[in-house]
Simulated scan of single mutants.
Amino acid sequence: MTMGLPHGLDGTVEGREYLTFRIAQEEYGIDILKVREIRRYEAPTRIARTPAFIKGVVNLRGTIVPIVDLRMKLHQDCRPVYSEFTVVVILNLLDRVVGIVVDSVSDVLRLSDEQISDVPEFEGAIEVDSIEGLGTVGDRMLILLDIEKLMSNVDMGLVAADA
């Protein structure tokens, strides 16, 4: 059993697990159940007439996977710099496989409901309905993304919003 987290009557640990990653100075989390694999960054094949944040596609064992630079999507005027820590998180979303480029992956954390706060009202680059909440772990603050909502956004065109 994990110390410090609430346990159910059956002895299981309550809460949800999130893959945490960094984009610039911010730390984000996404539902670990959406993650298929984590790969090092390799330049994808560019597709004409796609938004700048869609870097292109890669062939992943016979599956053509669109690659989205999440840094550019969330920080519209960001000019990405790729390093040895840059990774692609391959996701299973609404019957599609999509890759997101992030600066680095941190770890997997289990958060209880008490560690997740509602999102305050604010204007920003991310639609508020794409944020599940704000997670707190010690002095760390995580922006918990609803990655399916973010990827089904109209300007993405990668995943059907009505699926």
Score class of each variant (00 low, 15 high):
54 I>P: 10
56 G>S: 04
105 V>R: 02
15 G>V: 13
126 I>W: 02
60 L>Y: 10
37 E>D: 15
150 L>N: 10
103 D>Q: 06
154 V>S: 09
29 G>W: 04
96 R>E: 15
145 L>K: 09
8 G>C: 10
88 V>Y: 09
130 S>L: 00
122 F>K: 01
83 S>N: 00
29 G>A: 04
113 D>W: 01
146 D>V: 02
52 A>Q: 06
100 I>V: 12
83 S>R: 09
160 A>D: 15
51 P>A: 07
77 D>A: 10
23 I>N: 14
36 R>I: 02
136 T>G: 09
116 I>S: 00
144 L>K: 02
118 D>T: 05
71 R>M: 14
71 R>S: 15
81 V>S: 08
153 N>I: 00
44 P>H: 13
14 E>F: 08
91 L>R: 08
60 L>Q: 05
5 L>M: 15
133 G>W: 02
139 D>F: 02
131 I>S: 04
120 P>W: 14
80 P>M: 01
116 I>D: 05
27 E>P: 03
153 N>E: 11
157 G>E: 02
59 N>H: 15
99 G>M: 12
77 D>V: 03
128 V>P: 12
159 V>S: 06
109 L>P: 00
52 A>H: 03
42 E>P: 01
115 Q>S: 11
1 M>S: 12
27 E>L: 15
76 Q>S: 13
130 S>I: 03
55 K>A: 13
95 D>K: 15
106 S>M: 00
145 L>R: 14
92 N>Q: 05
116 I>N: 00
79 R>H: 11
78 C>H: 09
64 I>E: 07
26 E>R: 08
111 L>M: 08
91 L>D: 08
7 H>P: 03
47 I>K: 00
34 K>G: 03
14 E>Q: 14
153 N>S: 10
120 P>Q: 12
86 T>M: 08
10 D>A: 03
108 V>T: 11
148 E>S: 15
137 V>K: 13
100 I>Y: 00
109 L>T: 11
132 E>R: 11
45 T>Q: 12
131 I>E: 12
43 A>Y: 09
1 M>I: 09
42 E>Q: 08
161 A>R: 11
101 V>H: 11
63 T>E: 14
127 E>M: 05
30 I>D: 10
121 E>N: 06
46 R>V: 08
73 K>D: 07
110 R>P: 04
91 L>K: 10
53 F>A: 01
59 N>T: 15
61 R>P: 06
142 L>P: 02
97 V>F: 05
18 Y>T: 01
112 S>L: 04
29 G>N: 05
30 I>P: 02
27 E>G: 09
73 K>V: 06
42 E>T: 05
36 R>T: 11
99 G>T: 14
155 D>F: 04
24 A>S: 11
91 L>S: 10
115 Q>W: 07
85 F>N: 08
67 I>M: 02
57 V>H: 07
15 G>Y: 04
32 I>M: 12
